[in-house]
């Protein structure tokens, strides 16, 4: 029994190492000169160099990687804000308020959970074109508010909150808005955090929408910007890997900071649905 546990631990540890290893590789490889990448000899650089980073830092116009980084931050943050506001209001109305036909409507929303976002690519493209939002960060922020997942998740959570709090507030003459703001939201922080983290990660890693909706390179987000390095006519691997590191490092650091919340959030969403 005891020996089994040790074997399992060793097996899991090795596997975990294999999972993290590529990330470590990004780190060490970004310090390699190109020639060493093409003539792969060892994992660690034989000759450490900062040239790759120097080149990126020296060309903020040619390689606007920090620009992309801030675009990504701005868009993901706003996206999270929009989703939390819009879906929490709707979920509150659907879960706690007296609305005619809300059951049917909730069923419709749940049904749209099955609609994969990428199916909507073409029509949403033309919708955005019609509104005039193409090549505009709003195109990546506002549509996220239509997330059926958000409504669903918060709806389930709000339903579980005790009725008594609300009834007491109604007797005190509180309006529905104040109940929503002062009672429901503060009680729902865990659920909101979960949805927020999800939305943020989803938006941060989103690839297809910015690829299709943005024309200008300086409006790209990081994932799409980094993809530009994959040009077919060059083998500047050092530069590419260094850019990848700049893109990855903050996310990894943020993950290490928030990992408990992120993991709790994912577990929660799995159980709630």
């Amino acid at each position: 029994m005891r020996r089994n546990t040790i074997l399992i631990e060793i097996f899991i540890a090795l596997l975990a190492l294999a999972f993290v290893f590529p990330i470590i590789l990004i780190f060490v490889t970004s310090f390699k000169p190109d020639a060493e990448i093409i003539h792969f000899e060892s994992i660690l650089p034989q000759q450490w160099t900062l040239d790759n980073f120097r080149e990126i830092l020296a060309s903020p116009v040619e390689i606007p990687i920090f620009r992309w980084f801030f675009n990504s931050l701005l868009i993901s943050t706003s996206c999270t804000f929009v989703v939390l506001t819009v879906t929490s209001m709707a979920a509150y109305a659907l879960a706690r308020l007296n609305l005619p036909g809300k059951k049917k409507f909730f069923a419709v929303i749940i049904a749209t959970l099955m609609v994969p976002g990428q199916i909507l690519l073409i029509p949403v493209y033309f919708t955005l074109d019609f509104i005039g939002w193409l090549d505009n960060p709003l195109a990546l922020i506002v549509p996220a508010g239509s997330s059926a997942f958000g409504v669903f998740l918060l709806h389930q959570f709000f339903k579980g909150l005790p009725r008594e709090l609300e009834e007491a507030a109604v007797i005190d003459g509180c309006s529905v808005f104040r109940i929503y703001w002062h009672i429901i939201l503060p009680l729902s922080k865990p659920a909101l955090a979960t949805l927020g983290i999800f939305t943020f990660i989803g938006s941060w890693n989103s690839f297809m929408a910015p690829l299709v909706f943005m024309d200008s390179v300086d409006k790209y987000t990081l994932p799409v910007g980094i993809a530009l390095f994959q040009s077919s006519y060059s083998s500047e691997y050092g530069l590419t890997i260094a850019a990848s590191l700049i893109c990855t490092l903050p996310v990894i650091i943020a993950f290490l900071f928030f990992q408990k919340h992120i993991i709790k959030g994912i577990s929660l969403s799995g159980l709630k649905s």
Binding site: V20, L222, S244, V251
Partner: peptide
């Protein structure tokens, strides 16, 4: 956390790698 870490990497970086 270790097994989940790769999911934090955006697909373009993962793809390049």
């Amino acid at each position: 956390a270790a097994f989940f870490m790769p999911a934090m990497i955006t697909i373009s970086v993962g793809g390049i790698l």
